[in-house]
Amino acid sequence: MRYIEPHGHMVSRTTDDYEAMLTAGCAAVCEPAFWAGYDRSGVQGFYDYFCQLTDYEPKRAAKFGLPHFTWLCINPKESEDTALAADVLGIVPEFLERPNVLGIGEIGLNKNTRNEMKVLEQHIDLAMRHGQMILVHTPHLEDKLKGTRLIVDLLKADARVQPGRVIIDHVEEHTIQHVLDAGFWAGITLYPESKTTPPRAIDMFEVYGGQSVWLNSACDWGRSDPLAVPKTALEMRRRGHSDATIDALIYGNPIRFLSQNPRFHLR
């Protein structure tokens, strides 16, 4: 088996996780910038984090022979503070030329507030001015439906945005159709409690089609499983899917989306 982990917060994971992922067939990992579990005290905290994502973490992954890529932004959980967001948006451009940066992400909404919307709009503008791809985080639980609709509307309102260069992540049964119908890629996140389980992810793949879909573990410092993607592949086998179908979903699809940025390459 071979697969891409297109969404993993590796700075929160151990080297044992890297080893396990390699052993399971991981060929590359992509790490969107996200919330640390606490609010950073200022822009300097983000500067250090961006250095970690573009310098230290790819080196750590390289020790295991794993290509590491990243996406940069201020996450929606900290976007309620628009002054901080403006400062962080100010330093993102100086990192965009680093060799493992794939685009702007994971941007999006958390509680669907006006400030979050404003900062999301600024991120989209930043991405468009710099010709960047976009990775979007959709809100949790009861906030996901409304947030996904607001995000899709906002993206569609900007004529510069090419939907095929945007992935809207953490879709579930009530949001996937809306995302795919609008021409965006959809990410399905496999979590033990929230988001989706492997059987549900495979249901969505079967019902809604898998042309513009990727699977990810979104492993971070919370309850999550860095091997969720290969475990779902095993479940797909039990469901009778061919090796070619599985390979296309967990390896071919992420490569097809990510390769739109020429910086994305496997070893």
Partner: peptide, 23 residues
């Protein structure tokens, strides 16, 4: 999922907190 979702469509004025509770 729809039954447990916020059905409103307008952004809210301010975040009541960071988390979601599931309903």
């Amino acid at each position: 999922l729809l039954s447990l979702s916020d059905p409103t469509t307008e952004p809210i004025a301010a975040a009541p907190g960071k988390g979601a509770i599931g309903a």
